[in-house]
């Protein structure tokens, strides 16, 4: 590509083409081509074609891929302070979460990856995660006792579910549908669009909107490429990224609404529990954090953000 003036940037992610993140990336590509006068092009590889989220980050570091999108749950292995997002009930509400992500704290965490050769560009909305179960509705944390709940393969996620009284069971996302069907696990937790698109609602008939964690998606770029971009190109890139974020958040809100309507139509009972019952349960998690001064300060700063 160095032969011509155009720069083709390769972006891979793990979501399917109907997902709001993919649509926002398509828009980002169109914007980027437009504002750069065709000098910058985006080539998108959806649906995990080039590897899982962790593998794609490695490809950025290796230098054969330019950009990717991962959940902060995966990002925490590369930027350890992002573990803070795994803490249950960290944000008061959605506005609070956006204030933090779009403010100095969010930017600080995005930049942290640069020492790992990856730089965060923006946060896409991935809503908040809640429990869904097969046979037994969850109205309060005590209902979680003894239930095997699938979690992502992350220490933070395991601790979070165990602190709420469940029995955290790491199982890969791809094997989850049959595992739920066959009863290897009793339930799982995720945001409404994922619950809907994965069709887990065909098996799980109770969805408890306790909204325990907010785990945004992070758009990242390899420093191999980023350091090679001119100031002008960086500006174009950031401009295209920023407008895709606005667009994605709008699409996400619509997708969330649609997902809840659709699963309800399919016979899922949606439970709106008293969230304080759940947040009271996790006080231990926060008192444990006091031992880690850096993390404790970060939590304080987040909680103090208006």
């Amino acid at each position: 590509n160095r032969l011509s003036d155009t720069r083709t940037i390769k972006l891979a992610h793990s979501l399917d083409v109907n997902h709001s993140v993919h649509k926002a990336m398509v828009k980002m590509g169109e914007d980027l081509a437009k504002i750069s006068g065709g000098k910058m092009q985006l080539e998108i590889y959806p649906s995990q074609q080039l590897g899982t989220e962790r593998e794609c980050i490695e490809l950025l570091q290796i230098g054969s891929l330019d950009m990717t999108k991962v959940s902060v749950g995966v990002m925490e292995n590369f930027a350890p302070r992002m573990k803070v997002f795994g803490l249950p009930f960290l944000f008061r509400d959605k506005e609070h979460a956006f204030q933090v992500l779009d403010g100095p704290i969010g930017q600080e965490l995005l930049d942290e990856g640069t020492k790992y050769w990856i730089k965060g560009l923006a946060y896409y909305d991935a809503g908040s995660r809640s429990f869904y179960t097969k046979d037994k509705p969850i109205n309060s944390p005590s209902d979680l006792k003894g239930l095997k709940i699938r979690v992502m393969e992350s220490v933070t996620a395991v601790n979070m579910v165990n602190s709420l009284g469940g029995s955290a069971t790491p199982i890969s996302w791809g094997e989850l549908y049959t595992s739920l069907q066959q009863g290897v696990v009793d339930g799982a937790e995720n945001n409404p669009p994922s619950f809907y698109l994965s069709r887990h609602y065909e098996v799980c008939k109770y969805y408890t909107l306790d909204e325990h964690t907010v785990l945004p998606d992070v758009l990242i770029i390899g420093t191999h490429l980023w350091n090679d971009l001119s100031e002008q190109e960086k500006k174009w890139m950031q401009q295209a990224v920023d407008s895709s974020v606005v667009y994605q958040r709008k699409l996400w809100a619509e997708a969330e609404k649609e997902a809840l309507e659709e699963v309800q139509k399919a016979g899922v009972e949606i439970i709106y529990p008293d969230k304080t019952l759940f947040s009271n349960e996790v006080e231990d998690v926060y008192s444990d954090i006091k031992e880690n001064e850096d993390m404790y300060n970060l939590v304080q700063r987040i909680q103090n953000t208006k």
Binding site: D16, V17, G174, Y177, R199, E202
Partner: peptide
Amino acid sequence: PPSNILIVYSLASGGVSIA
């Protein structure tokens, strides 16, 4: 059935019923 690849298809197709 059961078939993990049909689940993959369901995801890729934007949500054809797995059942």
